[in-house]
Design a binder for these strands. Structure first.
Length: 887
RNA sequence: AGGCAGUUAGCUCAGGUGGAAGAGCAUUUCUCUUACAAAGAAAAGGUCGCAGGUUCAAAUCCUGCACUGCCUACCA
């Protein structure tokens, strides 16, 4: 323990130790469980700052609860990441072999993905280890392993048999690039500059036109009506009439629907039910025909030959051009609107008609809302509760099928006849291919081609990790479920969190967690979201190498106010690293001194014998209570700040410095006494720090207690409440104030630090024995920290020659500074102080002369103000006296 | 369009229940003082977004506005 900089090597050493000793492996025991399931990162993923933050916060919570004696469990795992993973492997396939997944076929392609995933999935888990995460590595789960697959099938079959899962042709969000349907929340909306095209539709049997405004002229071929608001007087006479669709001359009717906004565009809307959600609803209400004109690859179909096969953009250009030629384009406005994009590939989503599987979530949502309203689930911060409930209440059925290959294949089987043709029998949901159809006795079946939305398996995560799929009455599930808290960013609140609640209630009759801790997003120092395209990504692995894992953890913890985004930059990591180093060095000081006194029974705290002892104990008791409360209420940032403040500003700056007086004592007993307190507080604060900075605290703890349990497995030391002494804080403040004022003076007078001065404490009047008593008792402190060699006490003397003065209440402190005092400087200093105090006096006098203040303010407040005024007045008087003396 | 946050020192942020503006980083000055120069001591730096209101008293409570960010939405 010689080095002045803390050794980073210990991080690897300690994690290895924890792994080898299975420190984080948990079995149900008699203690109260505290459980967290990890938000499983995608197998494709590599650790970014967001992961680091998310997992560090979980780790902090788990580690703290372990210290408190809970039966803690944090379950690790990874997600198969459906579309995202398939996309990556497809790209790789194209690059390496120039092939598409169709060239390989389903089976071979899946083998390829599996092979790839075994290669990569270890990486992210190793990175979690590097972060120090106290996950139970005996329980690594994967959303597509056997047990999780069983859970998915089981859940599907239950829902299917209950009639909640159904198949139907509906308008869905479709990604033409991923060639699959997406759920409503997998679409991200972005603003885009575009145009509003005003198109003339000729009215039948008339020379008139009716003009519509649209952002999608290419979809006119799919129009099956025009719609106006029934209350729109401009058009009432036209409702019921027919118009011709430009370029194809198909006739459609003008209808009315109250959803139409009179003030938008011309107040007339072209209705394209097959490719617009609103239009689809209008069509349903008005029983309109649905004509599909865009296929699953985003190409035009069922349109005149010249447009056939064009993609949407090309078709738009051509249609606009042709409308112009026909003189049916009235005008083009600039227009900015939001367009939906695929959350996986950012390609524009096309709403289109497609046969998909849906899950009816109405009842589940209702019960999820009830659970929140009845306060079974708490949000941290609370502000997320409202949007969460609102979302659940407006939820539409969930499109759960995807037209990709990587994922849980829908466990639905259709029976086929001898010719291999699908029959009309009811499809069957089952774990395995059925033996025989109940209806037609056919023995051959085909399985549904689609796979399930990744989030379907994620929604089962809190129960599937406890092997619900295999046995829903197993001991572990009963013990660890419901889990204690879910820690997540708000970006997957709906995608994942809400659905876990729905499924938890559905399958376990109980919510999956009691608390939802939502943290913010990490931004760069300009407040921008970190993204690859912006090139502002900070790699946590690099930060760990550069500053150490503890520093990374501390910096993130300190910034993680619930629900608030955080800006983080190198200076935060630097500051954190310096703090870690401070801990190391302070511990070195104590350990070096411990060696000198030999063995110290550090389980016994000796009685505080002087002010600083009482003070640090009292401060510690206060801080410890705050830190614990902050950990428990997910205010990790506050806990980190309190730790920093207590340890550095109180323990190091004052207590350790003051302990040196006794440390240089020749009496072993005196040394032992102060060391026992130093060690007790060090050990306790190390414990309280250890959830945030597990490595350095483990190392120091072990040096302090060679034969004891490691800090991770220790129990929090009891706080000696009987040493609490409120008055010590006030007393200590008096001493600190004096020391700081002397230091300031010395600094302003440029007194060399090597020079010790004398100090005269001059008491004014008679009624201040209390304070002077405190100073008398603790004059050592002033000598030690303010570089004062001797202190004299006197009463009502006038200022000695060549000395500077400090006035604190009714005590004057004279520092004789023969040879150092600069009379001019001292004068300027005193005058400056007087002007400052005079301003204060003015303010207070004004306040006290306010009749209403005297009448209405509480008496204590008036008293306080009066005392302040008197003190200020006295100070001015004394400074003036000193000033006169200088003349 | 609606909802929710935020706006305090140059930067990043603290400031339960209203009673004299706080920290870290950066800056300046001194100090390698026997745990720590990745440190210590000190200084400087603020009309608490703007405008009203409630109150004896507002950074804090209320109303409006502005800007920033996020979420939601059937913006044709």
């Amino acid at each position: 323990m010689e080095k002045k900089f803390y050794p980073k090597k210990i991080e690897e050493k300690w994690y290895k130790y924890w792994l080898e000793n299975k420190t984080f492996s948990t079995k149900p025991n008699n203690n109260k469980p505290f459980t967290i399931v990890i938000p499983p990162p995608n197998v494709t993923g590599h650790l970014h700052m967001g992961h680091a933050l998310n997992n560090i916060l979980q780790d902090i919570i788990i580690r703290f609860r372990k210290l408190q004696g809970y039966n803690t469990l944090w379950v690790p795992g990874t997600d198969h990441g459906g579309i995202a993973t398939q996309n990556i492997v497809e790209k790789l396939l194209k690059k390496e072999e120039g092939k598409t997944r169709y060239d390989l076929g389903r089976e071979k392609f899946l083998q390829k993905v599996l092979k790839w995933r075994t290669k990569t999935s270890g990486a992210i888990l190793d990175q979690l280890k590097k972060l120090g995460c106290s996950l139970d590595w005996d329980r690594v789960a994967f959303t597509m392993d056997e047990s999780r697959s069983k859970a998915v099938k089981k859940a599907f079959i239950k829902l299917f048999n209950k009639g909640l899962i159904y198949r139907g042709k509906r308008l869905v969000n479709w990604c033409p690039r991923c060639v699959t349907a997406l759920s409503d929340i997998e679409v991200e909306y972005e603003y885009e500059k575009s145009n509003l095209w005003y198109i003339k539709y000729p009215i039948i049997n008339s020379k008139e036109y009716i003009v519509i405004a649209t952002t999608r002229p290419e979809t006119i071929f799919g129009d099956t009506a025009l719609a106006v608001n029934p209350k729109d007087a401009r058009y009432t006479s036209l409702v019921g009439k027919s118009v011709k669709i430009p370029l194809i001359d198909r006739e459609i009717k003008i209808i009315s629907d109250s959803i139409i906004d009179k003030s938008f565009g011309t107040g007339v809307v072209k209705v394209t039910p097959a490719h617009d959600i609103t239009d689809n609803e209008i069509a349903r209400r008005n029983k309109l025909e649905i004509i599909e004109i865009i296929d699953t690859n985003g190409k035009m179909i069922n349109v005149p030959y010249i447009y056939q096969g064009l993609n949407v953009e090309e078709a738009r250009k051509k249609v606009v051009e042709d409308l112009g030629v026909e003189n049916l384009l009235l005008k083009i406005d600039n227009y900015t609107h939001s367009v939906g994009k695929c959350y996986r590939c950012s390609i524009k989503v096309e709403p289109l008609m497609s046969e998909q599987w849906f899950l009816n979530v109405r009842d589940m949502s209702k019960r999820a809302v009830e659970a929140t309203n009845s306060e079974k689930i708490f949000f941290h911060p609370q502000s997320w509760k409202k949007p969460y409930i609102l979302w659940l209440e407006n939820l539409r059925d969930w499109c759960i099928s995807r037209q990709i290959w990587w994922g849980h294949r829908i466990p639905v089987y259709y029976c086929v006849d001898e010719k291999g043709k699908q029959t009309n029998c009811k499809p069957i949901a089952a774990f395995d291919k059925p033996k025989e159809c109940h209806y037609c006795k056919s023995k051959s079946f085909i399985q549904d081609e689609d796979v399930l939305d990744t989030w379907f398996s994620s929604a089962l995560w809190p129960i599937s990790v406890f092997n619900w799929g295999e046995d829903e009455n197993n001991k572990e599930l009963k013990h660890f479920y419901p889990t204690s808290v879910l820690v997540t960013g708000h970006e997957i609140l709906y995608l994942w969190v809400a659905r876990m609640v729905q499924f938890g209630i559905e399958f376990m009759k109980e919510i999956p967690y009691n608390n939802i801790f939502i943290h913010g997003i990490i931004r760069d120092r300009h407040g921008k979201k970190m993204s690859k395209s912006l090139g502002n990504v900070v790699d946590p692995l690099k930060i760990m190498d550069q500053y150490g894992t503890d520093a990374l953890r501390f910096a993130l913890a300190q910034a993680a106010a619930p629900g608030r985004d955080m800006q983080i930059s190198n200076t935060s990591f630097l500051a954190a690293r310096n703090f870690i180093n401070k801990i190391w060095n302070a511990s070195r000081f104590i350990i070096l001194n411990l060696k000198e006194v030999g063995k110290l029974d550090n389980t016994i705290i000796q009685q505080p014998i002087e002010l600083s002892d009482e003070w640090i104990m009292t401060e510690f008791i206060n801080s410890a209570a705050k830190i614990k409360k902050d950990y428990e209420s997910y205010n990790i940032d506050n806990a980190a700040r309190e730790i920093y403040d207590f340890f550095w500003k109180k323990y190091c700056d004052w207590y350790i410095e003051l302990s040196k007086i006794r440390m240089i004592s020749t009496s072993l007993n005196i040394k032992k006494q102060v060391l026992s307190i130093l060690v007790y507080i060090l050990k306790s604060i190390l414990q309280l720090m250890s959830p945030v900075i597990p490595f350095i605290t483990s190392e120091i703890w072990q040096i302090l207690n060679k034969n004891e349990k490691i800090i991770v497995e220790s129990s929090l030391l009891t706080v000696p409440e009987n040493f609490y002494n409120e008055s010590s804080i006030e007393k200590m403040n008096t001493i600190k104030d004096i020391i700081m004022k002397i230091r300031t003076l010395r600094s302003e007078m440029n007194i060399p630090s090597t020079m010790q001065t004398e100090a005269l404490f001059n008491t004014l009047g008679n009624n201040n024995n209390n304070k002077i008593e405190i100073i008398r008792e603790n004059e050592n402190y002033i000598k030690q920290l303010a570089k004062v060699k001797s202190i004299q006490f006197c009463k009502n003397i006038t200022k000695p020659k060549n000395s500077a003065v400090i006035i604190i209440g009714d005590i004057e402190i004279f520092l004789p500074l023969e040879g150092f005092i600069d009379i001019v400087k001292e004068k300027i200093r005193l005058i400056k102080e007087i002007t400052f105090i005079n301003q204060e006096i003015e303010k207070i006098t004004l306040k006290l002369s306010n009749e209403n203040f005297i009448k209405k303010a509480p008496k204590t407040e008036i008293e306080k103000t009066k005392i302040r005024l008197n003190k200020a007045k006295l100070k001015v008087k004394k400074i003036n006296e000193n000033l006169n003396f200088l003349k």
